[in-house]
Design a protein around this nucleic acid. Structure first.
Lengths: 210, 210
DNA sequence: ACTTCTTTTGATAGTCTCTCTCTTATTCGA
DNA sequence: TCGAATAAGAGAGAGACTATCAAAAGAAGT
């Protein structure tokens, strides 16, 4: 399982492999510099220098500075896992199972990267805004997957609404600093993030009782 | 009811009144230019010229270009309306009533402005991202209001989760282009947006059945 | 191997948002 | 009327992002 890393198993030509390597290098250097110096203090030029490409090339791989932090394929993995769940599960139950499967599929490096991006998502306003917009995009994918399971139309109001509620509770968990989710040590935190998401989904499944 | 306009009834000193007028002028000119030319094509310099202030002054009133589109006090009004609902209503029912009260309190000009901002929120990526981030901020306010009603702690997991789900379904409605919500004429559309939000909340209240 | 075509890259210049600093003008309170 | 805040303007500058064009590198056909 390649998880969130940017290197597919063995792409065809040399050109493709080089591109994948460049992309991974840019992302890796960017995250390192941001971890060391902070987000605002890290410029595109620094990232480009560290990755040994020109600034222009940076923008050929990532349309904005935020995207170098955010871009992963977690949504794709989760959608696939969702499709793989047995059809007798309710939509939310299936989604919970898919989340668990996604977490299990991540390598230690994936978890470390995910921790970085999650931290930045919670703390840097521009990154957070962009990340949440991605969440909204994800509503459509979730809606499509749920529609497939339920044999409904993906544009169906109820289907989209359910997807929106799921994303809403995930957002609420992901963007809260209140708890000490991001204070301490690495991997444990990502796991506990997934645990909190699961708890939120269970609560939603029960009709959100107070 | 002052609604979304930026001019409070009668502020104390001359200084305050002048500030309010400048703020309103900037906002008004900005929305006009954006309506005429589009968001990206409208520069801060143009807005500043039209409002007869320096570009630097623009940023004293609005921290970013997106904020000139977004900043309103709808969330405050809604929160107040929520507090005013009778305590026997369930949280979601109270929120629906509060939304209806908010809509009723808006002047025609408020509705026109709201239509513009809603359109831009759905169509311009930067604006949308920023707007959704504001939604997340709103989760906290909603959570506090719900906590007050239910006599719970605002940091309570279930309370926040409920607030997240509410915002999630609203987001799902607000950011969808699929329907023809924004295609045709003015005020009707904003009203129908509120109608769709109400329908989404009703669905959420029923436990999101498919 | 050699040429040709396509893709990728780097260099350069430019635009626009946003920040900082300094100075000037205006309003407020005594 | 006079000092104290406070707001506005001017100007310089950093940094994200775009557009253009020429050079380099991989792919493909002969």
């Amino acid at each position: 399982m390649t998880g969130m890393t940017d290197v597919p198993a063995r792409p065809a030509g040399l050109r493709e492999r080089k591109k994948a390597r460049t992309r991974a290098a840019i992302r890796q250097q960017a995250l390192r510099l941001i971890r060391e110096q902070g987000y605002a203090a890290t410029t595109i030029e620094q990232i480009a220098d560290a990755a040994e490409v020109s600034p222009a090339t940076f923008f050929r791989y990532f349309p904005t500075k935020e995207d170098v932090v955010l871009q992963d394929d977690l949504d794709i993995i989760t959608t696939e896992a969702l499709d793989a769940q047995p059809p007798e599960l309710s939509p939310i139950a299936a989604f919970r199972a898919a989340s668990a499967a996604t977490l299990a599929s991540l390598s230690p490096e994936d978890l470390a990267t995910l921790r970085d991006t999650a931290e930045l998502t919670a703390s840097v306003p521009e990154v957070r805004a962009r990340a949440i917009d991605e969440f909204v995009r994800t509503i459509n994918q979730i809606a499509e997957a749920i529609a497939r399971r339920a044999g409904r139309n993906p544009d169906d109001f109820e289907v989209r609404n359910l997807a929106g509620a799921i994303i809403g509770v995930i957002m609420s968990v992901t963007t809260s600093y209140g708890g000490s989710t991001w204070t301490a040590e690495g991997l444990t935190d990502v796991t506990s993030l997934f645990a909190r998401i699961d708890r939120a989904l269970a609560h939603l499944e029960q009709g959100l009782p107070l």
